[in-house]
Amino acid sequence: MERRRSFPDVLAGGIFILIGGAFVVGSLSYELGTPLRMGPGAFPLLVGATVAALGLAIVVKGLIAGEVVEFGPVPWRAVGVIVVALVFFGYSFRGLGFVPTAAVTALLTTLASRQVRLPTALAVAAALTVASTLIFVVGLQLRIPLWGPWLSF
């Protein structure tokens, strides 16, 4: 059989090894206990080792007989913009309040698409801000101030 190397398979396996390994290392700092009274570290150690082992198997298989041939394109702009938008949301929701945070988050995410122009993005963001305020604050009585403490001078 012809050897088909697969970069995505190796990458997936690598991620499993990395995360599994990290949990194994982490769980060693907790008490392992005995089988009768398992400590907090025992179960994560077991599962972490399983994840890493499966990751290793995926890497080996990916080097011999890969499944996914191509990783495909990555929409870097969308990835970056959406990450920034969500982190901004988490960070400033309490401080800025509902309306400014929702508006900025909506505007940023709209710009993730390469086909959207600024006027359209502004219109969509404005509409979404109004809609979400009506749904969540007016309709569902979410207890979040519309304008947060960072904005009171």
Binding site: I82, T105, T109, T110, Q115, V124, A125
Partner: peptide, 9 residues
């Protein structure tokens, strides 16, 4: 373009 910002927000 309208749908996905709504989902995220």
């Amino acid at each position: 373009q309208v749908l996905f910002p709504m989902i995220i927000l």
